[in-house]
Design a protein around this nucleic acid. Structure first.
Lengths: 351, 351
DNA sequence: TTGTATGCGTTATCAA
DNA sequence: TTGATAACGCATACAA
């Protein structure tokens, strides 16, 4: 029945240097209570300037680093922000991820990245984030099932969806202006004198892609009705360079091919351009005008000079994080909102 | 001991559903101790199959999710792996980051990404990771000051450095085979009949870049000595497309320009090619042969067809993580090691 | 302004 | 095989 059977605990007055320094060590050294140390490091105002100085100095001297895990445990909230991504082979997404990481750091949080390769694991992966007491979640890809929003609402964890259909309950949505983009693309191709237009995107398509295509068609609708202009919907197997290239070879080889094509993503457009030039021997923009979407870095390279709709990855990231921050520090259950990032037509040589 | 029927829902459970479920709730429902629940979920073998089933079932039914923060607190080790990056505008690095994230997830850990924009904050940022009780750290960029290795050794946190000089005490190093790459590039240019060679990289240069350049020069040394071949070191302002383009305009405009150039990174090579073709009107590879390094996706595009030294980002990531995993689960203070990833010459049309 | 006492959810230790 | 209990390092309510 050895109730007392505890072993001797080594509580020296001095701090052995093979152990990690805790706030208790700092407190002992500075001659204050642990709670005082905690208050100093949490920026709690109710502390005298003198003790604050002494404690911070001692902490510095001992090389004390706060244990974020313990802090999170106590607060039941960590300073981690979950980043749910997928399709990181897409350069625009990756560029966006980069800026997202910076933006999250800038508001004093840390990104915990989850890459969801299989879409069906999406929801499970998002729930996983709850295990880390995340302060918020950004979903840049994939489609979470709408009902899991409840879990985040109940635990008061804000969620922001970027560039996807806003189907998650209680989540903020941030989009680039796909409608304006589609319209601008139409205007550019029409201004270039093209009369047989096409929209090339991955068959089936994503939310963003469809929105762009629909806006494009809506913009040319009057001229379509008057018979002044023709339109052909086009599809490719994958939303990347190879998809664009293959589709280009196929489409442009046909007798009655479009002479002005709007692509759902820049990479598709680059593949299309290469197919046109190197497989079909077409001149751009004389024989074929091309407009892309995103303005990835390759588009501005001399070999392409792609005219495109620019959505600024950095601005999109800032916007996303500002939404998130508002909810993290804000009142519980703020109304969900929709934010739209302006886009811009970048004129180069392809249209 | 009524076995919980399937139709038994939260209604008669003792757990109020506005609260987060803890292991104590599961224990109460399943009629066992908290420690038993813990053992079941940790995969601790010493448990009867019957209780294990009951507990797991109960946990599932209640929607219990383990609190990783609390677990980490107790174990004094989290399942997070710190990823120290910078220069994410470089497409190869980003691609590598993508594979690194996947690889870390695959071994059951979570990536905690830190982007270090200012190199001087490098060491401080790395130390920050210790606050999260990370299980390991991967440094893909920047140069940590050698002495901070001690902090990680003392806390038994393995560190792997990728593609940098192995200056951190106690850290494993993973590199691609820069030496073989430099040699292969030299052979390719010589085989193309070029006799005035150059190595173009950012002035000052990085560890990897210098290693590649030195190997290149070493490979042509015999022919250099015999006067059969000439060599000119070249520099650009930035290690990207623009840097390569600007350098190209300047260098290739000179009367005695090289006719075969090895670039430290693909992006530099792409800029150089565009400068050669569109500014100088040169034919590639007739007037100028170019070899790059990395094999980023753009290099294989039809508009470039860059002959390059390929380092596979995915293999590099796998190698990196396998090293890390060895140390995480392995014995304390395993000897530091150096791993080298093979590279391969990809012949396209630029040389 | 500062100290004391308690709890956060988990795992590890020990006893049964 | 299972249960009781003591940490883990911090923050906070309450007391002084």
């Amino acid at each position: 029945m050895g109730v007392g059977g505890k072993q001797q605990v080594n509580k020296d007055a001095t701090v052995p240097d093979n152990r990690v320094i805790t706030s208790a060590d700092v407190a002992r050294e500075a001659g204050v209570a642990r709670s005082t140390v905690s208050r100093c490091l949490s920026g709690d105002g109710r502390i005298s300037e003198e003790t604050r100085q002494r404690v911070l100095e001692t902490a510095e001297r001992l090389g004390y680093q706060i244990n974020q895990i313990a802090r999170s445990m106590n607060r039941r909230k960590s300073d981690l922000v979950g980043l749910v991504t997928s399709g990181l082979e897409d350069p625009f997404r990756v560029q966006f991820l980069h800026h997202l990481i910076s933006a999250i750091q800038k508001i004093g949080y840390r990104p915990l990245v989850i890459d969801v390769s299989e879409p069906e694991h999406m929801s499970r992966s998002m729930l996983h984030l709850l295990q880390y007491q995340v302060a918020g979640v950004v979903v840049t890809s994939g489609s979470p099932s709408p009902e899991i929003g409840q879990h985040f609402i109940r635990r008061n964890v804000p969620v922001v969806l970027v560039n996807r259909a806003g189907l998650l309950e209680g989540a903020d949505v941030v989009n680039c202006d796909n409608e304006a983009g589609g319209r601008l693309a139409a205007e550019a191709l029409l201004a270039a004198g093209k009369r047989h237009l096409g929209f090339l995107n991955m068959s089936g398509g994503t939310y963003s892609g469809n929105a762009r295509g629909e806006a494009f068609v809506a913009a040319i609708a009057p001229r379509l009705a008057s018979g002044e202009v023709r339109f052909t919907p086009l599809g490719c197997r994958s939303a990347d360079y190879d998809g664009g290239f293959q589709a280009g070879v196929e489409i442009l080889g046909r007798p009655d091919a479009p002479d002005g094509i709007f692509c759902g993503k820049d990479h598709i457009a680059l593949g299309l351009m290469d197919a046109a030039r190197f497989e079909l021997g077409l001149k751009i923009p004389q024989d074929l005008a091309v407009v892309g979407f995103d303005d990835i870095t390759a588009s501005s390279q001399r070999a392409y000079g792609l005219t495109t709709i620019r959505q600024c990855a950095e601005d999109l990231a800032e916007l996303t994080v500002s939404r998130l921050a508002r909810h993290i520090s804000g009142p519980e259950g703020g109304a969900m909102a929709r934010a739209v990032l302006p886009v811009e037509l970048i004129r180069r040589t392809s249209a």
